[in-house]
Computed example of a mutant assay.
Amino acid sequence: MMALIPILTLFAALGSGLMAGLFFAFSSFVMAALARLPAEQGIAAMNSINVTILNLSFGLAFFGTAILCLGLGVAGLMRWSDQGSLWLVSGSVLFLVGTIAVTMIFNVPLNDALAVANPASPEGAVVWTRYLAEWLPWNHVRMLTSAGALISFILAYARQAG
């Protein structure tokens, strides 16, 4: 079983990197582009993204990485004296707290509020303004913690292989 840990660590690095890249795109240009649109169009575009992102490839990267992090974090704690264990635990905590928990606690409720907003109404414009102001900073957190998890898993793998 312990021979699987380096392979699982590589998959956790890959998943963390994929998520960091996704969140980087939103932080760097996607949300800025959507913010330039009239509220009605921005809401429609973001709602479309929020629906279409729920697919197999995203699910594997997002939830699959979370499952790997649960296992790797436990393995790191149980075998604390092994090379790379600190990095396994660090990467797991970064991804589970900074990516998964932040998404569920902050980003998803904002997405849900946007989904029920009437894009053509003045209230919809207020929801959109609030959404842009609140969603993006939490996305920055997800980007940074996913990138931190990626780095941690790379360091864990380097210690395991060394």
Rank of each mutant, 00 (worst) to 15 (best):
residue 63 F to T: 13
residue 9 T to M: 01
residue 75 A to W: 12
residue 142 R to M: 07
residue 87 W to R: 00
residue 62 F to Y: 03
residue 39 A to W: 02
residue 53 I to E: 10
residue 141 V to G: 07
residue 116 V to C: 04
residue 66 A to V: 10
residue 51 V to A: 14
residue 36 R to Q: 15
residue 66 A to F: 12
residue 65 T to M: 08
residue 161 A to N: 14
residue 34 L to K: 10
residue 148 G to P: 04
residue 142 R to H: 04
residue 130 R to K: 13
residue 64 G to D: 08
residue 64 G to E: 04
residue 150 L to A: 11
residue 13 A to G: 01
residue 38 P to E: 08
residue 90 S to L: 15
residue 120 A to W: 00
residue 83 Q to T: 09
residue 137 P to N: 09
residue 122 P to H: 08
residue 75 A to L: 06
residue 71 G to T: 09
residue 92 S to K: 06
residue 45 A to M: 13
residue 40 E to T: 12
residue 52 T to E: 14
residue 119 P to N: 02
residue 148 G to Y: 07
residue 84 G to V: 05
residue 9 T to K: 00
residue 9 T to A: 03
residue 103 T to F: 01
residue 93 V to A: 14
residue 34 L to Q: 12
residue 149 A to H: 08
residue 70 L to F: 15
residue 52 T to M: 14
residue 134 E to R: 14
residue 7 I to D: 02
residue 62 F to N: 01
residue 96 L to A: 06
residue 153 F to I: 05
residue 148 G to C: 09
residue 39 A to E: 04
residue 56 L to N: 12
residue 68 L to K: 07
residue 54 L to Y: 11
residue 75 A to V: 11
residue 80 W to R: 12
residue 32 A to F: 13
residue 131 Y to L: 03
residue 139 N to C: 02
residue 66 A to G: 14
residue 37 L to Y: 06
residue 110 L to A: 11
